[in-house]
Nucleic acid binder design. Structure first.
Lengths: 182, 182
DNA sequence: ACTTGCATGTAAGTGGTTACATGATTGG
DNA sequence: CCAATCATGTAACCACTTACATGCAAGT
């Protein structure tokens, strides 16, 4: 799923500026399974417009920079549905934390403990962001479905870390005795 | 976590060829949270060797192409630990399926059903691959820890899909009545 | 006869990220 | 006074993917 398709998916539900699209990707209820930065969104929107899949209108604002509001066209809707009908790419999960965890036994206990706690905190923060985004507006049934999926997965992931992180930490190297050096 | 670090992580546990490293990434017990293709592994190994972090020896084989066996050096071990000690990047999850699912209500029921089933099948296959990889050899305690994490997450994900996919399917557009057209 | 597995590598292309450039307003 | 928010866009860079090139042996 490239950024162009992602933009179409957001514009399918209503007008938006590039700035807003990015905010939705970072803070919205889909933030945990999509991603896009300014550097990819703006060029994507420009290309979509040149292909006639979206149209734009510039809105001047008092005390704020002018904004370019994009809207999906009929051709855009058709193209989006066509893209959704194509075979789906595999979901993907990349975890620097799990790679780190695999080597707990050769790392200092302090470090493993710190990273495990950071990981848990990030997870809690991620889940909170999701719940906040969900609470912000009335969700469609499909949005609710994906939200529940996310909740289910995040809950076990979090619970597992919480109840098993001490096992991982105990695998790590006992802290180097500083007292000898000091 | 770039491919260079990934190669070091595998070589940390023993010698391997580029071909084997890729197999471990695709079929090993870490396959669900790392990824690397030939096109990135070979250049990565060459660079690691030029930096003195790994060494290689060419082994001729009867009836098979010669292979280049890489081994991590002392400098490589040190560099790897240093890389593990750096702040961790965020885990990431990208899901074309969930993006698709968000739009179930505008898609034909047949398609949603097909994709949901495919998704479930892939998940089952992924979990089987993980269990097979785990059964193949004696796992270290850390490897067991990450395996259990993966198991826990995959199990709920799978269970959730299994028991809620029909809800998603029911959101989709009832199939276009072909009888009228035929 | 064809495919799969073993085995290494390159080249072109893609799809992004990061940092920069610009600039007004509001709030701490 | 500084940081953040709003707002758009470009350019340089990077890592990785895909496809290609090569070739032999064993299994189907």
């Amino acid at each position: 799923m490239n950024v162009k398709t992602l933009c179409l998916s957001i514009l399918y539900e209503g007008e938006a500026t590039g700035y807003e699209i990015r905010r939705l990707c970072v803070e919205g209820e889909c933030a945990y399974f999509v991603e896009a930065s300014f550097g990819s969104i703006y060029p994507a929107l420009a290309r979509l417009e040149s292909e006639g899949l979206v149209s734009s209108r510039t809105e001047l604002q008092a005390g704020k920079p002018a904004k370019k509001v994009y809207a999906i066209t009929a051709a855009g809707r058709a193209a989006f549905i066509e893209q959704l009908s194509a075979p789906l790419a595999d979901d993907m999960f990349r975890s620097p934390f799990l790679l780190f965890a695999r080597f707990a036994h050769i790392l200092p206990r302090e470090l493993v403990e710190e990273r495990a706690n950071e990981f848990l905190e990030r997870m809690v923060a991620g889940q909170k962001k999701l719940e906040d985004a969900a609470a912000e507006r009335e969700l469609s049934p499909a949005d609710n479905w994906i939200l529940n999926y996310g909740r289910a997965v995040m809950e076990v992931a979090q619970g597992h870390i919480r109840s098993h992180m001490h096992e991982l930490i105990s695998l790590a190297q006992a802290e180097p005795r500083k007292d000898a050096a000091e």
